[in-house]
Design a binder for these strands. Structure first.
Lengths: 146, 146
DNA sequence: ACTGTTGTCAACCGTCTGGTTGAGGATGCC
DNA sequence: GGCATCCTCAACCAGACGGTTGACAACAGT
């Protein structure tokens, strides 16, 4: 199990069954048994998948007698969206600038990669989240998984 | 290696080193050696990571003599964003409706989960992407990885 | 109390993953 | 040509992962 929250969340959604369960939980809370029903795997396997989702903070489990209603903690998805959008925007701005440079110059000169002209405070030129001691990623806002 | 594109992309970003490389590539294209430099792992390990990113469609590698400039295919990130936003919005609408119901009723009646009152065409009540034969997820728009 | 339902834990298994070392090809410089 | 630089491939390894079966606890109905 990866230690940092972002890795946990991405890893949790790397499995199609888990992704499908998240999609269904977006529609309505469900018990473990209900979640397991459409899949050709055992309930134990589904319980295991839910453990992964819970440890990633993506779902929470409550009790209703012997049933375990599962609830999607949708705001945890923001963790990923924030990360993705941050770097996607950055890259696309750069590519747009490269397109502009290409459009404004003769055909026989090829420019090199257009880097930012001044370092920004989001520049990840130093590794930011591969520190082996403690990752600097934000904790999931959904609360403490287990 | 997972077969479907979404699983590949999520899995690719589940590793902090790979995530960091993507973040750095958002700023500027880099060679394998440049990407490897800040990490306490071998160049071979980094090359392997890049293979994963390439197979997920997130990066492309070109040739410049013996160097291998690596380019981020940022639009592939949209694959994940699209998926995430779809279900996050759905869930949050549901929770908002539940909050409204709670606000409009006496304190001694607890409602059950608020499901959509009519099925929508995005309802994932049937498994959509765990079909063992062929996943229905979209192919990465960044082109064919390898 | 007995039986059925629901779900988790433990152990096991085959496969995958993130790292390693060793080898070697492509390219550039002297 | 010899040497340096850059990078990939292959094989190996320990640990992780997605599945299984068996066992069992909590709960509900008769």
């Amino acid at each position: 199990m990866a230690a940092d929250p972002l890795s946990r969340v991405f890893a949790a959604l790397a499995d199609p069954t888990r992704r499908d369960m998240v999609a269904r939980l977006a529609v309505t809370d469900s018990t473990v048994g209900e979640l397991a029903e459409p899949y050709a795997v055992s309930v134990q396997a589904v319980s295991k998948h839910l453990r992964v989702l819970e440890d990633a903070g993506l779902v929470s489990r409550s009790r209703d007698a012997q049933r375990r209603p599962v609830h999607l903690e949708a705001e945890v998805l923001d963790l990923m969206t924030t990360w993705i959008e941050r770097y996607r925007r950055q890259a696309e701005e750069r590519y747009r600038r490269l397109d502009d440079v290409l459009a404004s110059m003769p055909d026989d000169v090829a420019p090199t990669d257009v880097s930012p002209t001044h370092p920004t405070d989001v520049s990840p030129t130093q590794p930011t989240d591969v520190s082996p001691t403690h990752p600097t990623d934000a904790t999931p806002p959904g609360g403490n998984p287990s």
